[in-house]
């Protein structure tokens, strides 16, 4: 067992534990935090595959942005765990069926001949100057430019749809227009008044 194997088992163990806790823990905030841990360990696994760009992007996008917003929402929800658990036994047969299907499908894909070590061998060690990021970028913008653009367009549609669904203007809400605020001149607010000065009457005697 060399160093990389030890790292692999270390991260895998944490990943499986975290993933297990995501579905078993009772507190939704804890579940979200365990999901963060799972993402983080997965990115560690990707690092051992020399996919450093993907690994860092996983942390940056999922841990740094998506899960923060997710946690944000989960923390503000007032979730009653007993209400959530009410129909557990009613839903169990259906859930078991879905879970078995999922497990079977994964077994078919992962167990088939297209996923063995002879098809996808371990990555070859690259020389020191090799840049995974540059490689990925040039591949994305040459060979895979159409799928990439397509994905970008789909994301754009999703962004616009999300904004269109949630944006509503309230008629009675008050807000300030910063452009108007910036445009204000002194003359609009202050009026200088000329007044004749008069001698103060002597108060101290």
């Amino acid at each position: 067992m060399n160093f990389v194997t030890a790292v692999f088992y270390f991260f895998s163990a944490i990943l499986i534990f975290a993933a297990f806790r995501v579905v078993t823990t009772r507190n939704p905030v804890h579940a979200a935090l365990f999901l963060v841990l799972a993402f983080f360990s997965a990115s560690g696994l990707w690092l051992t595959l020399e996919a450093e760009f993907l690994a860092i992007a996983l942390v940056l996008v999922y841990v740094g942005a998506v899960m923060v917003l997710f946690l944000f929402v989960v923390m503000m929800l007032d979730i009653n765990i007993d209400r959530l658990r009410e129909g557990f036994w009613n839903y169990l047969p259906l859930a078991a069926l879905v879970a078995t299907m999922l497990a079977l499908e994964m077994a078919i894909v992962l167990g088939s001949r297209s996923f063995g070590l002879n098809i996808i061998p371990a990555p070859i060690a690259h020389p020191a100057g090799y840049s995974n990021t540059k490689e990925l970028g040039s591949l994305l913008y040459t060979d895979y430019v159409y799928p990439f653009e397509l994905a970008a367009v789909i994301l754009l549609v999703a962004i616009i749809a999300a904004i269109a669904l949630t944006m509503r203007r309230r008629k009675n809400s008050k807000y300030q227009d910063p452009a108007e605020q910036v445009k204000v001149k002194r003359e609009d607010r202050v009026r200088m008044v000329e007044m004749a000065t008069d001698q103060p009457s002597s108060t101290r005697s």
Partner: peptide
Amino acid sequence: NVDAGLLYILAITSMGVYGVIIAGW
């Protein structure tokens, strides 16, 4: 002296917010 140093910085600094969120909650 890693190749994707800038990305690493972005990813690591983006995790600082967890301390704040968890502390508040």
